[in-house]
Design a protein around this nucleic acid. Sequence first.
DNA 1: AAAAACAGGTTTACGACATAGACTGGTTTA
DNA 2: TAAACCAGTCTATGTCGTAAACCTGTTTTT
Lengths: 116, 116
Amino acid sequence: MKLQMHQLASLDRLIHEPARLMIVALLYTVESADFLFLQRETGLSKGNLSVHLAKLEQAGYVQIEKTYRGKLPLTLCSLTETGREAFQHYRRSLHHLVAATGDDNERPAMTPAPAG
Amino acid sequence: MKLQMHQLASLDRLIHEPARLMIVALLYTVESADFLFLQRETGLSKGNLSVHLAKLEQAGYVQIEKTYRGKLPLTLCSLTETGREAFQHYRRSLHHLVAATGDDNERPAMTPAPAG
DNA sequence: AAAAACAGGTTTACGACATAGACTGGTTTA
DNA sequence: TAAACCAGTCTATGTCGTAAACCTGTTTTT
């Protein structure tokens, strides 16, 4: 399998950012999670998490539902279908990269000559 | 295989950046490449490529050798052993992520209760 | 019952960094 | 000798991640 540069160049930056990658990957496996769960799990500060969630919501990747647990506010987050698809797409690109760099049995000794 | 947050949180940002990911992945498969080859292959602007290479060199991930092809300057780049190891480590993390999000057969219906 | 402490988030100020366009220094072409 | 060109480097700009400060309500303390 050959390494595809354009695939790497066009990696979804929204998902690629580690903080958001954690969030999205988590939501991908969990279906729904509240703010504090995400915070504990990811280790992000509240402010940081809040900003990233807002960004993901604005992109239509996550749905945020604000309700109450008793009298305290509760923020429930879940991946939208758009978000799931975006992550799957992103995941495939990573998979491709991992596969393409798998075995180092075909490393040419030298740079191919520059095109004329 | 379970999703490890800390592994994502500690992804090597130097390699994680798509522009540099292209460069490093390329050098990983190619052993040595000159500036123009990298530029053509990655599609980066000269300025951009130059800065990223400098950053990778400073980190000890790539070795940069400046020579001449005839009378024109020639810059040869290759991954150092440190760079190879860093990439391999990074790659393993991606591999893990891809594996951990592989099949959606175990998605709990709801958020685990927050810890007391 | 007023003050203090806390829970759950949001806003904002700061610093870091990716990007591309201007610049350098030599080279061939007109 | 001027203009176009190659091979890169430098630098100004804007974007963006981060955490500290802030906000709105609630419980606890005195």
